[in-house]
Amino acid sequence: MSELLAQLAVCIERGKVNKASPYPPDLRGQDGAEELTKQALDSGVAPSDILEQGLIIGMGTIGHKFSRNEVFVPDLLMAAKAMSSAMVQLKPFFESGQARHKGTIVIGTVKGDLHDIGKKLVAMVLEGGGWNVIDLNVDVAPEKFVETLKQHPGAALGMSALLTTTMVNMEETVKRVRQEAPSTKIIIGGAPVTDEFRAKIGADAYSPDPQGALDWLNAQVA
């Protein structure tokens, strides 16, 4: 069984969605994440094992490669696509409580910023890493972040901005969250964001890449 999950992890890492997918060329015609997840569930593998020994391993491998600049956005998106094809089959087990998330994170791009590629990648990696991701999508006002955090006590907050002109809006959200949901852990990212900027606005963490965000979140619940 561990071999099936190891194969699943490889499919996630390499972005092999399903048997019909021509990518990657060297896995053409072979089962992908979709088929392998189904086989694992049919053979009675616990959904939590599929998550932990398949998806998390696969996404972790590609996430670390992304951090090291060994792979790039297109590769990570393919991996995320493969992961989604597995995740959709695991969803009912999360809903019934048979599988558990490590925690919840509310995520979105800041007010004025519609560029969600980075945020989308982070959401996918976090989800693949076992987190419940509440994605508020793009152009999220500070009050919307606060309202959602109040509905999900204990959730962390992740914000991203692609533009130097919008990243400053993170400061307002951090202030509001500190006032109204003070125990929230806040992590920020996005192309122009730096750790120096994080320190200036008082967020808890900055990550230049999705895997760094996942590692930081995991450390918060360890």
């Binding site: 004025g112 910023d113 519609l114 560029h115 152009d139 533009l163 919008t166």
Partner: peptide
């Protein structure tokens, strides 16, 4: 395009 007060517009 979506416009905001202090930034260039974004493609929606």
């Amino acid at each position: 395009l979506r416009w905001a007060e202090e930034v260039p517009p974004s493609v929606a």
